[in-house]
Amino acid sequence: MLPREFSRDLLGLAEEVGTEDPVTPLGGSTQWEVGGLPGPGAREVRVASGILEYEPAEMTVRCLAGTTLAELADGVGEAGQMVPLDLPQPQKATVGGVLAVGRSGIRRLHYGPIRDHVLGVTFVDAAGELIRSGGPTVKNVSGFDLCRLMVGSLGTLGVIGEVILRCMPLPSLSAWYCGSADPFELRSRLFSPSSILWDGSTTWLCLEGHPADVEAQARLSGLRPCEGPPPLPQGGRASLRPSDLKTLTGEFVAEVGVGVVHLSEAVPRLTDERTLALQKQIKQSFDPAGRLNPGRTAWLP
């Protein structure tokens, strides 16, 4: 039972990452500027795509990190399932890319952050070695959780090669509503809506589930049916405590109950000194030569 063969794709990736000179992993480049731009001269590394294993009764899917969100959605959609990684540009954005960036989609209110959908990660470390973490089961506390370390690490600790994700049933109905209702009051009145967005005047609401429940909740909300979510400002993203959203002004779309705010300009991120030292220690320890995605920093916007 001892391990464990790696696929040709993974072995190839390990070889490509190699053991020296700077590399920058490339996904769909849909969130390319997050954490800074890669330094000049870094060798671009692409990861192969494809769903490797999908068993609907397991509700898990294993795929290569270069798989696009659209490919993934098609692959599991046929069996009535989904992985709620609803990031923009699904035809371009890759699974590895969105996990490395770590930002969740606008239905986080109901489905939780994307890190909670990741069960296993295989990555290439700075020494060119393939490292496995997590596993194929939905529950797993076997050792330290390197999967969660990789999500949001911006490729600065390793290059994600393959992942195992948790699937969920596609809701039988998914519908958007909008109007002028108080979004904070809606949040407490409705049971587990999938998304509440607010731009300071208009409220958008996503309800999913059994049609009769969706209808009843929609009635309770007092909102009218409308086309999907609004366009989100792309220039920046703030992370606030959900209760702090009430005081927002200017141009924004806020995820009510979550605290993500989509803005037109970037905002600084804060972290305490001891935690920052720990972050730097981890980077230093996993990538002593600083060859993984130089120029990008996980704790910058």
């Binding site: 770590g102 930002r103 969740s104 986080r108 952050p113 890190r115 506390v141 330290f144 959780d145 969660r148 370390l149 999500v151 949001g152 690490s153 600790l157 993203r237 992370s239 606030l240 405590r241 959900p242 995820e255 979550v258 605290g259 993500v260 991120r269 804060l270 972290t271 305490d272 001891r274 935690t275 920052l276 720990l278 972050q279 981890i282 996980a298 704790w299 910058l300």
Partner: peptide, 27 residues
Amino acid sequence: LPDGSLAQLGGLDPEPAGYDLRGVFVG
């Protein structure tokens, strides 16, 4: 922390900066 210093991991906001030390600490 094991050296006796204090730190906050994670936050009440949805996307705290940096690596997910909160997620690593749990378990």
